[in-house]
Amino acid sequence: MNSFAFIIHPIDPKRDVQRRFPLLGRLLPEPAIHFFSAYFPPVYLSRVRGIRSRATGEEVEGWLVACPLTPQRMLSLPLERVYRKIIETGRLAERLGARILGLGAFTAVVGDAGITVAKHLRIPVTTGNSYTVAVALQALWEAAGRVGIPLAEATAAVVGAAGAIGRVAARLLAREVSRVILAGRRPERLESIRPLVEAEGAEADIAESLEALREADLILAVSSSPVAIIGPEHLKPGAVVCDVAQPRNVSPAVAAQREDVLVIDGGLVEVPGEADFGFDFGLPPRMAYACMAETIALAMEGRYEPYSLGRRLSIERVEEIARLAEKHGFRLAGFLSFGQPLTDEQIQRVRERVRGRSQWALA
């Protein structure tokens, strides 16, 4: 049987530790969880059953395994120590019988984005970032259509544009919109991306600060920041934000204070078959993150190869994995916002703000 494993790790320390160790999660304060996460061993979470390819009718089996490090610890520990912990988790996946390994959340972006980890394992590794790009943009296009934003006239922004996902996503955005704002911590990296974006057909500008987001109609948030960085003050009325980042880039204050913007959780897909993940990782039944779905789709296809590694993803691979995933029955999930289903009323409120703009009054 085709098989896979996928690594997750605690994003919200107390909440996520309680999912597997209820008593420990309740008793330990958050600073203690951060500290001790460096000393916990890799954790077996569950066996995944019931995922079945629409194309072949065959079921794949899989396992969820956990690297214990929190995002804060991944950023504060020496990189070699972080690599060692992720590799140890990958070796647990190998012992379980997985034939391909997917890296989730910060395990996919730390250091060289999977390259070093892959060199130390016997099975191929993927970050899942190619399919994450495809699904995030699909969600952004659909949301834009729902609220009435005409893509050809829109300004888009990418927060985290210098990262693996942001770099290729900005190029694909430039094929659909008139202007792309590139935001990130390192202006020199953004400058190197600007000509690539402009070559795809859109004007490209470098954001001096997140205040520049107030000019954007569409925002793709893919920064690897360990804390939320986009607040209510950064968004224009009628804007659509697709937040792909784990942890989230968009502050919960946006949901509380800005009914005139639409924030959607990006990178979520519905999995084919009667998926039973055997573990609650925070999503509704049969839903998975796109990075996980890429790993599963590759197993279904028998493509046991290091598909998405490093920080130079190709447009060709983004398009290919989107076709493979569709072939096997993966599809864009319904819209969630901060983990809750979006209502028609929420979408309509934002649509009314978009219609109120003079230049789009007839859209």
Rank of each mutant, 00 (worst) to 15 (best):
P226S: 01
Y44W: 09
Y39P: 00
D260F: 02
A143N: 03
P41T: 04
L309A: 14
F36G: 04
P78L: 03
I264V: 15
S209W: 08
V318Q: 07
C67Y: 02
S224F: 08
A202V: 14
R355T: 11
Y131Q: 09
A299S: 13
L190I: 13
A363S: 15
V82P: 11
T89R: 10
S76E: 15
S209Q: 11
R312I: 06
E88W: 12
I100S: 04
A5G: 12
A143H: 08
A144R: 13
V110A: 10
A333E: 11
L362N: 12
G266H: 09
Q346L: 05
G231E: 13
S53Y: 07
G310T: 03
L75G: 02
K14M: 14
A55F: 14
G282N: 07
R81D: 04
I115M: 09
S308E: 15
G50C: 13
A221D: 05
L213I: 04
E233D: 14
I7M: 13
R186S: 07
A183I: 04
E270T: 14
G334H: 08
E301F: 02
S37L: 10
I11V: 15
A290C: 07
K85V: 15
E191A: 10
V133H: 11
G25W: 07
A325I: 01
G90Y: 11
G339N: 06
S251R: 04
P41I: 01
N249P: 08
E215R: 09
A55S: 11
R122F: 14
E200R: 14
D260S: 00
T89Q: 08
D260L: 01
A174G: 13
R303W: 12
A325P: 00
I181P: 14
A169Q: 12
T132Y: 03
P71M: 02
L196S: 08
